[in-house]
């Protein structure tokens, strides 16, 4: 049972990592917690689902469609909820509040549009492999692979490419980056839409893996992603990746060897403890900035 539970934990954890990557990207560059990320994730899942069930497209096309929708939602989010705040000198809590607004707005729109019932993908994606005592499904392997490669690509992109450097410069100091000729507005839009596209793809993958897509999944998974963001250290990509896996394993093992009814307290119990003993997160350094 131990090995199978470890697999379960890793799969669950990799979905958390996938969500947390989006949070982390925005946190790292804009120093903002985007509370609406979970809902963008949920919308992505629905778009993917509708594409697969109604237009009968290939799952990869569906993911592309979800990513596009996510990117558009991200651009709207930036326009409506973030840009107006940048022009004014407002409290640093303002973006948090306005993204909370976007999140409850999107959640109730989804309830209206899609109804409260959970829906599922056609079950043609449930192929599975057996490794001795372990059983792992194709989707699970795929999710693990996607999240690890995304992590690597993001790290490389931020460290080596020109846009990546501009992104890090913006993260360091918006005014200075502006003076140095970086079009910071463009960089910010790019970051938010990229993170949202990632979130939407994550939505499709998680919907596939658990075979359930419903409007409140944004808030449940979003809160977990938030926990991972803090667990791994705000704005730290490796931290988000490993933090997600740690949280997934911790949750599964709390069920396997503890009491399943406290499962939902594990995530926040862990971050409360982490914040008190190591506020910069497991993998963060004291002056972490810029998605390194």
């Amino acid at each position: 049972m131990f090995w199978q539970q470890l697999v379960n934990g890793l799969t669950l954890g990799s979905t958390y990592s996938l969500i947390a990557l989006g949070y982390t990207l925005i946190m790292g560059v804009l120093n903002i917690v985007n509370m609406a990320h979970g809902e963008i994730f949920m919308f992505g899942a629905f778009v993917g689902l509708l594409l697969v069930t109604h237009l009968k497209v290939n799952i990869f096309v569906a993911m592309l469609g979800a990513a596009l929708t996510g990117a558009i939602l991200g651009i709207i989010l930036e326009r409506v909820a973030l840009r107006p705040l940048r022009r004014k000198a407002v409290s640093h809590l303002a973006p948090l509040i306005s993204t909370i607004g976007v999140s409850i707005f999107l959640e109730s729109v989804a309830l209206k549009l899609f109804g409260p019932q959970s829906r599922d993908f056609p079950s043609s994606f449930t192929a599975a492999f057996e490794f001795g005592p372990m059983r792992i499904s194709l989707v699970q392997i795929f999710i693990l692979a996607v999240s690890f490669s995304l992590m690597l690509v993001l790290r490389f992109w931020l460290a080596k490419t020109k846009i990546g450097k501009a992104l890090r410069a913006t993260a360091e100091n918006i005014e200075t980056a502006n003076l140095l000729g970086v079009n910071t507005n463009k960089i910010i839009v790019l970051t938010v839409s990229l993170a949202s596209a990632l979130g939407s793809v994550a939505g499709v993958l998680v919907g596939l893996s658990f075979n359930a897509v419903e409007p409140t999944m944004g808030i449940t998974m979003g809160l977990k992603g938030l926990a991972v963001l803090i667990l791994g250290g705000m704005g730290n990509i490796t931290g988000a990746m490993l933090g997600g896996l740690i949280l997934g394993i911790a949750e599964v093992f709390s069920v396997a060897y503890g009491n399943s009814s406290y499962r939902d307290a594990v995530a926040f119990g862990m971050i409360i403890v982490i914040l008190f003993i190591r506020p910069q997160g497991l993998f963060g350094s004291r002056d972490q900035q810029g998605g390194k």
């Binding site: 409506v80 909820a81 607004g101 999140s103 707005f105 109730s108």
Partner: peptide, 17 residues
Amino acid sequence: RMMIYGAILVAMMAFRP
């Protein structure tokens, strides 16, 4: 209701923080 609440939060931050 929840939709309106959400819109209020966004609008307040943008226009009357």
